[in-house]
Design a protein around this nucleic acid. Structure first.
Lengths: 107, 107
DNA sequence: CGGCTACTTGGCTATTTTGCCAAGTATGAA
DNA sequence: TTCATACTTGGCAAAATAGCCAAGTAGCCG
């Protein structure tokens, strides 16, 4: 096994995973999985300053997770990869398993 | 759509995603996907201080991603959820798409 | 043109994360 | 018991993230 290649691959993956590693960004991603949204819609959903949301979006865009399209005054974002929905499902499998484990501990 | 529920769900997901959002932790996860490893093997693989690796492992364990088993002097870790392999595949789909996009920009 | 809305960017502070060293625990061997 | 190995934990300093405000850009309408 090539340790250097493994390291590089992990670094690349980390860039994508980090771009999702925040509650607000996961909310954005989930909303976009349902269809495109403009920044003000996402801002209302998240309940933070628009500048904050805009920076989250810029980060997600920079790693290729989402794509913007300007129409009139609004900028609409959409997921650039439908495979993201699968990723969310994988995460949920783990969170459910985690919840079950906590149940066992508590019960 | 219940905004509060969405917020909670995203917070839960973020806990899991954050536990993967680091190159070393992704290396660990990839290694464990191939089978259990003890801490010193992982330390050699990653090339950091053992205390650092141990803290990464503690974090991953705390969110239920991995499970330890002590045998003699060693502690062996394994993935607690095989679905993690799927998650890695999802991430790779995105990184490949990202790489393709960069290609287009460069070319 | 001026003013309005939608959004982005700069800059700053507060918080979180990371990684090393040092010190502690646990197990096995002599 | 003493020593060595494997690992964890505490603590600290450096680095990365997050979020707000203020200021800037861009498109529409009068």
């Amino acid at each position: 096994m090539n340790s250097r290649a493994c390291r590089d691959r992990s670094a690349q993956r980390a860039v994508v995973v980090k771009a999702l590693a925040h509650p607000s960004r996961l909310m954005i991603a989930e909303a976009l999985a349902d269809g495109e949204r403009c920044v003000c819609e996402l801002t209302a959903l998240i309940g933070a300053d628009m500048s904050t949301v805009s920076k989250h979006l810029a980060l997600m865009k920079s790693v290729g997770l989402i794509e913007p399209e300007k129409r009139g005054l609004n900028v609409y974002y959409r997921l650039s990869c439908p495979c993201f929905a699968d990723l969310l499902r994988c995460v949920d499998l783990i969170t459910r398993k985690q919840a079950a484990a906590l149940q066992r501990v508590a019960g």
